[in-house]
Each structure stands twice: as C-alpha cells, then as structure tokens.
Amino acid sequence: MAQQQQVPSPIDVDVAVLRDAIRAEYAAVASDPSSGFHFHTGHALTRIVGYHPSWLEGIPETAVASFAGTGNPFSLGVLQPGERVVDVGSGGGIDSLIAARMVGAGGQVVGVDMTPAMLDRARRAADEMGATAVEFREGYMETLPVPDGWADVVISNGVLNLTPDKGKALGEMARVLKPTGRLQIGDITIDKPVPEAAKQEIDLWTG
C-alpha cells in the first residue's frame, strides 16, 4: 500500500479520511461492478461516453466491467505507436489497456491508482490480455510514482475531481510529461457553485 503522505489541501477537508472513503467506494466497484452506484459503470458507460467498439475488442471483461470514468480521453487524440503514457487513476485498467494497444510493443503505459482492489483487478486484466507494455503502480495523483519528463501523454478519467488539491495533481501531470507533452482528460464540471461548508462533507466527494 502506498505510504500515507501529508498533502496540503486548499480545501479544508481531511485528506486521509477522504482517501479512505474513495478507496472504499472504488473497492466496492472492483468487488461487484454491477451492484449499482451513483454513476454508471461498464459497457453501458462506454457507450455513454463514446468509446469506439473497436477499442474494446480484446479488452478483458475484468477491466471493462469496472470502468467508472466520466469522459473519453481517447476522443482527444489518438495515441501513437511507441509513445509513453501515464494513466492517472487507472482503476480496473480499461484505459491503460486500450492505451497499451494503441502504443504497441514499442510503447509503455504506467497506470497509477491508490486502491489496491482496483490495482489487483487491472493487473489481472493485463495478464488475461497478455499485455506486456503496461504496468500498474500504487500511488497518489498528487505524488505520481513516475520520473520527470517521462511521458508523451497523460490520460485520466473521472479522477481529478476526487482530489481537493487539483493544482498539485495537475502540476504532477505536467512534471511527468515531456515538453509539449499532451494532457487528455475526462472529468466533471459543475454548473452551480458548491457551498464552502459542503466541500467538507466527505459523502459529497464520493456521491
């Protein structure tokens, strides 16, 4: 398990408590993805966010069923053979495995996630697929376990909204990218402001 770190938060929320709640939520998704959450999952969600069916061919059900993103990073640009990709909050591995196939044997994909149950699921899916250009590392989006300037592309899907320090997470994404490297992100936006007091309610972050 990744070491708990003191991450300064610009929002007054207990980061350790928040992370525990998020881990519990996504461990439940990893354990039983079809049990019904406040977000869509799996194949139904891939259709909502516009994943091309060809991207899913050969991707193990282990990874597809636990998909819980909010957008479509691949709609923002095709990954090229040989590229290095970091998938921030890789969950059950669907986006990392799609990326691994796009970049091919000459490329590399590193998926980072803080939920052990999701990492287990992603590694199992990679084994089922025989994907050798992808590895999954335990870590936090605010302290990515990736060297400076390593990646051509950073992708992420439905994860950035889960940190109270989005500036720090975005700074980490910039750090691991090469100069002119691409950021391709699915996430959420809100039309109505969240009251300051509500930002401290852990349940609102996870549901």
Binding site: L76, G77, T180, G181, R182, L183, D187
Partner: peptide
C-alpha cells in the same frame, strides 16, 4: 462529464 486537453 467533460473532456479537456492541453499541452505542456
């Protein structure tokens, strides 16, 4: 849900 992109 949104998609966004940027370049370093």
């Amino acid at each position: 849900g949104i998609n966004f992109r940027a370049r370093k």
